[in-house]
Nucleic acid binder design. Structure first.
Length: 637
RNA sequence: GCUGAUGUGGCUCAGUGGCAGAGCAGUGCACUCGUAAUGCACAGGUCGUGGGUUCAAAUCCCACCAUCAGCUCCA
């Protein structure tokens, strides 16, 4: 008998007979993992537990606690889903069924779309497949054999996948009971290993994600080892639903979307307070940092958009109109307007860097099906800025923007991640320019000591970019800020400055946003704070609640004093019980409530209730004002 | 744009061929109240829009619009 050496994760070595199955190896030498093992990695490659060890190798056991193990577990669940569907609907054709973050899906081509009731039936069938505890068997075939097998089953999508594999490919199939699927694997040992799962939703999805292809029916599901973990996950989905800015936006009366303007949001008085506070903050911080605010028109002549390149690259997303028989376009971006302002006069190198900031309302034609509350709209306000500068100023300017982004996001308590995107396939401009620009961005990131991920080939067609993805309070990420180096616009608009040599030179330009879109940012903030905005942003900061009509006069006096200090106050003079008024203010997520009765009136105080901590005792009006003004000033959240 | 689902009073929803309903919100009256819902009464809807089928349509059929879940795309 031949023997082989197996090296484990802790570098210990074992000598075992050749062709020992991993599952047997675990039973013998790693008993503690016997129940937990899902699959294994041999020399870094994921394999089934039923695979034999036939040469010297490194062995690592994957359990549900490993990200990879979890994926394999869920992917196995997707095969069970497919088997259940085939049992119930034999004519359905299979697409693909991978594991995804938090779950899995499987795509099916079916004559009759599934209904939510069908899902229950499919779940039942999956349960019985799990009960049958069918083994996942790996079968290796060549290309011809694979095609023959799937032709017998009429699986046209699988055949298409196989045909795209190289001629000499070793093709693996997985068989459980009477069900065979094309799959690289690995899988759990048998269907019985899947403990808890749930089918979650139905959706259409294009075959291979291409909108020219047929739309298949996708079933989403998830699978966990413990019911507790699944319940927790389902709860988190519920929590996200509760925080949905569309729901909260309606409840808190911040904004609305009307049939008359799909994708064109209406901001209500309370939503406008948040908006204006964000803009005030933005203006103040930009002023401090040497930005000058501009405003360019919303409608501009078509010739401008031809010159800027938008006609060639962005026409599909633009709206057009005509005025006095001339063709005009509604701006989808602010940069061309900014270019015209730069070009209005001659600039000296001494004027640079020139930082033009613009809260610019842009309109873009988005597909109707893509619209989503404030997150995806057809008109939005970018907190844009275009910085025109000398080559030598690029790094400093980028660092300035990075610092500004960092300052802004911290104010809201967001963590964020940075990504650098490099030259794409269809880029304009020379390699040398791109290299220089990308180096400048990279250098700035390194000087700041920021960790970043590089997305090769993901830059804009006119230049590389740094993207900022912020993470909200329940762990979702959103792309907001971006810094883009742009060589095309200065070129296309023939921007110049006069250098110290008296000659004309080409300035460098960066284009950047921090909030991204004010509308989307408000959506993100709403979900991040679950509607309980920090005091400085809260549409109503203080609600004053008199206990009886006798206290109305004093209530009005307190209200006037607070308003005098620009504190946003509302008074509730309705003939209701205190508890009722408090409950309502609490649901409106108003940061402070002041309860006023005879006692307070006599003492000239107010009884303060915070939405977070409840009753926090009695204070003089003056102390309460100091408390509020301090909290606003420091943007405490 | 594509696939599927949904559309009934300000909000949340019931009503599946036979007189449009409930709760909350609103208004009026009573109670004058101490930290998350006082009681009674009243008012409010051409059932998304336009066609059609039927003695009769919120309900069945067709088209369109919007919303939702995804796909695709993206600030």
């Amino acid at each position: 008998m031949q023997f082989i050496n197996v090296t484990l994760k802790d570098n210990s070595k074992m000598t075992i007979p050749c062709n020992t199955k991993i599952v047997d190896f675990i039973k013998e030498f790693m008993v503690s993992l016997n129940k937990k093992a899902i699959a294994a990695k041999v020399d870094g490659k994921a394999v089934d537990l039923s695979a034999p060890l036939y040469r010297d190798c490194k062995l690592e056991i994957l359990t549900y606690d490993d990200e990879e193990g979890k994926k394999i577990y869920r992917h196995s669940a997707s095969h069970i889903l497919a088997q259940a569907v085939k049992r119930l609907y034999p004519n359905v054709k299979l697409g693909i069924g991978p594991a995804i973050e938090n779950g899995f899906y499987y795509d099916f081509d079916t004559e009759n779309p599934f209904t939510p009731e069908d899902l229950e039936q499919i779940e039942e069938e999956m349960k019985s497949i799990i009960k049958e505890d069918l083994s996942f068997e790996r079968i290796i075939v060549n290309k011809e054999e694979a095609i023959k097998i799937f032709k017998e089953h009429g699986e046209i999508y699988k055949i298409e996948l196989i045909e795209n594999l190289p001629q000499d490919a070793e093709i693996s199939l997985y068989k459980q009971g009477d069900f065979v699927d094309l799959c690289a694997g690995p899988h759990v040992l048998s269907t019985g290993k899947i403990k808890v799962f749930k089918l979650l939703s139905l959706a259409g999805a294009y075959w291979r994600g291409d909108e020219r292809n047929k739309m298949l029916q996708r079933i989403y599901g998830t699978a966990f080892l413990k019911k507790k973990d699944m319940d927790q996950y389902l709860n988190r989905i519920e929590e996200a639903k509760k925080r949905d800015h569309r729901k909260l936006g309606k409840e808190l009366d911040l904004f609305s979307l009307q049939d008359e303007g799909p994708g064109f949001p209406f901001f209500h008085p309370k939503g406008m307070v948040i908006r204006n506070k964000l803009e005030d903050f933005w203006r103040k911080e930009h002023n401090k940092r040497g930005y000058q605010e501009i405003k360019s028109p919303i409608i501009l002549h078509e010739s401008l958009w031809r010159q800027s390149g938008h006609w060639d690259h962005y026409r599909e997303n633009m709206y057009f109109t005509s005025i006095d028989n001339e063709k005009y376009a509604v701006k989808p971006m602010n940069c061309p307007g900014s270019m015209l302002i730069y070009k209005r006069k001659i600039h000296s190198y001494r004027d640079l860097p020139l930082r033009y900031a613009e809260l610019g309302l842009v309109h873009r034609h988005e597909l109707s099906g893509a619209l989503h509350g404030l997150m995806r709209v057809r008109c939005f306000t970018q907190d844009d800025a275009h910085i025109f500068m000398l080559d030598s100023q690029v790094t400093d300017e980028i660092i300035g923007v990075i610092d500004l982004v960092d300052y802004f996001y911290k104010v809201f308590g967001f963590k964020y991640y940075v990504e650098l995107s490099t030259k794409p396939e269809n880029a304009m401009g020379s390699d040398l320019m791109w290299e220089k620009a990308t180096d400048a961005l990279r250098k700035a990131l390194e000087i700041k000591g920021l960790n970043y991920k590089t997305n090769e080939g993901d830059g804009a067609f006119y230049g590389p970019k740094i993207d900022f993805h912020l993470e909200d309070s329940i762990g979702r990420t959103w792309q907001c800020g971006t810094i883009q180096l742009d060589f095309q616009m200065p070129e296309r608009f023939d921007l110049t400055y006069i250098g110290s040599d008296g000659e004309k030179h080409r300035p460098v330009m960066i284009h950047r946003v921090i909030f991204g879109s004010i509308e989307r940012f408000i959506g993100i903030l709403t979900e991040h704070f679950a509607g309980a905005f920090p005091l400085w942003l809260a549409p109503v900061q203080v609600k004053i609640i008199p206990i009886t009509q006798k206290n109305h006069e004093y209530t009005q006096k307190v209200s006037n004093e607070l308003k005098e200090k620009d504190i946003r106050v509302e008074t509730d003079y309705r003939n209701e019980k205190v508890g009722y008024k408090i409950r309502e203010s609490q649901l409106e997520k108003i940061p402070y409530m002041l309860i006023i009765g005879d006692k307070e009136e006599k003492q000239g105080t107010v009884s303060v209730r915070s939405r977070k901590e409840g009753d926090i005792g009695t204070e003089t009006v003056k102390d309460f004002m100091i408390r509020v003004l301090n909290e606003v000033e420091n943007k405490i959240y």
